[in-house]
Amino acid sequence: MVKKTLSNVYMTLIFLFLYLPILVLIILSFNDSKTRVEWGGFTLKWYIECFQSETIMTAFATTLQITVISAVVSTIIGTLAAIGISAMKAKSRAFYLGSTNIPLLNADIVTGISMMLLFVKFVDLGFVTVLVAHITFSIPYVILNVLPKLKQANRSTYEAALDLGASPLYAFYKVTWPEIRSGVFSGFLMAVTMSLDDFSITYFTKGAGVNTLSTMLYTELRKGIKPELYALSTILFFTVLLLLLLVNYLPNRKKSTTVERV
């Protein structure tokens, strides 16, 4: 009993540690006070101002574009690569997996700098270079989410489909895809997360004109933060939370309805 209570207290403390800053930001986004620490009454003005600030809206738009495009592209390249890798012999497999580990394990700052050094040789830093960088560090997450699913996927079912006269593409769509779908999906989510949260790599590859939310924040933080940003991040946080909850519960609902129909 004592052990149980201790466990619960400990778990609560860790959750508090992880979520306390988020709680603070959410509270501050409604705080009608110039000094950040004191509570000056409830207000929604930061939410209104945040939508009127051009700097914030531009950075927000850039972030969205980069996140969506990089996640989609890296999911496609990564899924194809995972299928390719799963068909490989040990040696080439090791090469691919080793290379996949590089951006995953290398220091963000080194990854960012190395790409910057390459990019400045050929193009001006800007939107495209950030995009390429994001795709590069997102692909490994996709691959490592899809590969285990491919391993679990029963190879003989795919071959059985071919045997029954399905074209390879049809067999893939009907047999393999359903088995790896969840992996592709979680890979995509991971890519979105990493892209949204990235600061270091964007910082080095972005050049002068472009800003994502992260890099804008970094500059702003030195000047003193604007409360509009709390509002924006609160909105983002709850949007994402809602999306994730929807994603997690929708498939289950579908399943149960098909069961009922049967």
């Binding site: 930001l25 949260d197 992260s214 946080f237």
Partner: peptide, 28 residues
């Protein structure tokens, strides 16, 4: 996994900033 990844959806610079406010000389 979800519970531990969720905080990452709030920008980490802002979360660190929140700690700065919490740990401030006159902070919470």
């Amino acid at each position: 996994v979800f519970i531990f990844m969720l905080p990452m959806w709030m920008n980490f610079l802002l979360r660190i900033l929140a700690w700065k406010l919490l740990l401030n000389k006159n902070g919470v």
